[in-house]
Structures are given as structure tokens and as C-alpha cells.
Simulated assay, not measured.
Amino acid sequence: MGKLFLCGSIVLAGLALAKFVVLAPREVSIAAVAVQDVVAEIQGTGTVATERQPRMGSKINGRIERVLADEGDFVKEGQLLAVLEDADLHHQVALARAQLEAARASAHRAKLDWERAKKLVVRDNAISEAEYDAYEEDYRVAESAVGVEEAELRYREFKLSETKVVSPVSGLVTKRWVDPGDAVVAGQPLLTVAETATIWVAADVDQRFAHKVLKGQPATVILRGRPDKPIRGEVYRVNPQADPITEEMRVEVTFPLPPDELQVGQWAEVYIEVGTVTNVLTVPKAAVLPFGNDKFVFVAGSDGKVRRAKVELGPTSPRLPFVPVTGDLQVGERVILKPIGLQGGETVRVAEAPAASSQGRQPESRP
């Protein structure tokens, strides 16, 4: 009998507890509706690039003698980067100079002979007209030979100059392709230099926002390698053609960066400012619950009663925890965070430590 009584007591206690759990008000976290200014931003992701990244190539076949720059070095326009072996070309230049001197000597002798012939003709017609013409022709041919040898010397000196590879831009060496002793052919790259005059992020942005992005708009760049140091920049160029597969468009955002911090290809995020709204009601994004095409927030009254309010969302930024709203809301009203499962009309219990309100500063955008 005692055991039956004990079992019955346990069952009744369990039913009472279950009833309490079912009927007890749901505990919720809340935030206050606030008024503030909001800078609307569009997010894009991409990689760091520069306007020019020329590959310094050899113009002739040969073998590398010296490489005077390495990856990570900053070089200036016109700076010598690499030298090819040039002993054979030096020999060719010396030979061309000797041939030029010989041609000039021959031309000088031919000129003297021609001038002597002119005197003989003028004085007493000591030579025939045909002989005179022959002297003149020899001189003209010798002068032409000088011109040919001068051109040959210029060509050999030019080929010798091609053993020296110089940078056409000022920038950062991002790739070294060869080492001393390597055989190379004409056109083969030796080093790659990223020009640092213009640095940008080539970012992909959802094409739905194409009409909002314009050249010159301010933007914020956040590099993966320094996420705590946002950099101010601006839209440099908007590609008019979208990718039909990804449904994104390419936007280039320029920003200043010291050359020693440049990492071409580094991943980055950009936030393009497309407008500002002032003195608007805001709620945390976590308070908004979609139903079909509509958006709702749930307001906890002072008595714990829940009221459902339909709202329209305004432009915001992916970096912000809050969003502008219009609808049946008042400043200071308490909206419920993460209201999944609520319908409106329920009674809730507000947690003792309320969540932070939607009032807050926007992310810092300046370095």
C-alpha cells in the first residue's frame, strides 16, 4: 500500500512539473528599438592586384650571368635587374669597330685619290674623264662602305645592350624565374615586377547591386593579412559585363598600401558605400523574422505580452549588427531576439541580463 502511494505521488509530481514547463512563459532576450544614422554598404570579395605586372623577359638567347633582384625587393624604373653572358657579343662589337675603322681608312684614301685626280684634270688634263670618274666612283663606294659598317656597329652594340634587363616600372618583385647559369631563350620571363603606383582589389559583387556601384564611391578594404586595420579606398573601375555563371560583376577598388606590405593575390573584402540614411529606427538583425515575402519583429510589452509588427527593411551594411526599419514601432520598444517559434499574443519572460540594444556604433572604417 505504501509503495502504491509513493508511486502515485511521483506520477502526480511529474504531471505537475510537465504542466509547469508547458505553461511557463518562454524566456527571451530583448533589445531596444533605437534611432541612428546608417551607412549602407555593398560587400564584395576578391584579391589584391596592381595595374601592371610586367614580366621582365630576355630579348635574346643566352645564359644568365647575374640576377640583381629577388622576390620582395622594391625596384625603380630603369634599374638593372639581370645580366646575360656577353663575352661573345663584346667580341662582335670589337670586330665591328675594327671593320668600321678599316672602312673609314679606305674611304679617306679614296677621297685623297679623287681630290688628286680633280687637280690633274683642272691643271692640264693629265688624266682622262673616264679615269676621273673611276676615282670618284671609288670614293663613293668607300663612303657607302663606311655607312654599312657604322650600321653594323650600331646593331652589334644594340645586341650587346640586350644582355642587360632593366625594369620598365617602379614596383615590387613578385616572382624570380631564373638563377645564374640558366640558359634562356628570347621572350622567356626572368622576373615579374608588380607596379605599386596603383593597387586595387579586384572584387566580385552581386550583379543585383550593379546600378548602385559607381566610380569614385568611397569604400573600405579589409585585407585578410591585417583584418584589424581597415583601409579607406574608392571605386576605381566597374566592369560593365557580369559573369553569367556566378551572376557577379567585377569592381576594382583602389587603396593606398606601403610597398613592403603588398602581397599580390592576397584575399580581401571590400565594403562600398552606396548611401547614408539618417535618424532612422533600427533593430538588431537577429530580431527580424521572415514570413514569406514579409518581415516581422516581435515586441515584448511591459506585461510580457508579445505583439507581432510587420516592418520594411532599409539599406544597411553586412558589417552592421542592426538594420533600419519602418513600421509599427516606437523608439525604446523591446524587440525579441531570435523570435523563431513565436506567433504573437504569447506571454514571455525577459531574461534578467538583456542583450545589447540595436543602438551602437558602425564599424570603424578608417585605418
Rank of each mutant, 00 (worst) to 15 (best):
K3Y: 14
F5P: 00
K19Y: 13
S29H: 14
V39K: 07
Q43I: 00
A49D: 14
T50Y: 09
P54T: 07
G57K: 06
I64M: 13
I64K: 02
E65A: 15
D73F: 11
E77W: 06
Q79P: 06
L81Y: 06
V83C: 03
L84P: 03
A94N: 10
L95T: 11
R104E: 15
A110W: 04
V121G: 08
E131S: 07
Y132G: 00
D138S: 09
D138Y: 10
K159W: 12
K164L: 08
P168T: 07
V169E: 05
G171K: 06
V173S: 11
D182R: 09
A186S: 12
P189M: 13
T192K: 06
E195V: 03
I199G: 02
A202N: 13
R226L: 10
P227T: 01
P227Q: 08
R232H: 10
G233I: 09
E234C: 01
Y236I: 00
N239V: 10
Q241M: 12
I245N: 06
E248Y: 03
E248L: 05
V251F: 03
D260W: 08
G265P: 07
W267K: 13
A268R: 05
E269M: 12
E273Q: 13
E273D: 11
G275W: 02
V288Y: 08
V297K: 05
F298P: 03
V299F: 06
S302L: 10
G314M: 11
S317P: 01
F322Y: 15
F322H: 12
L329F: 07
V331T: 05
E333K: 05
L337R: 12
K338G: 10
G345P: 09
T347K: 13
P354L: 07
S357W: 09
R361V: 02
R361W: 08
Q362H: 03
P367K: 07
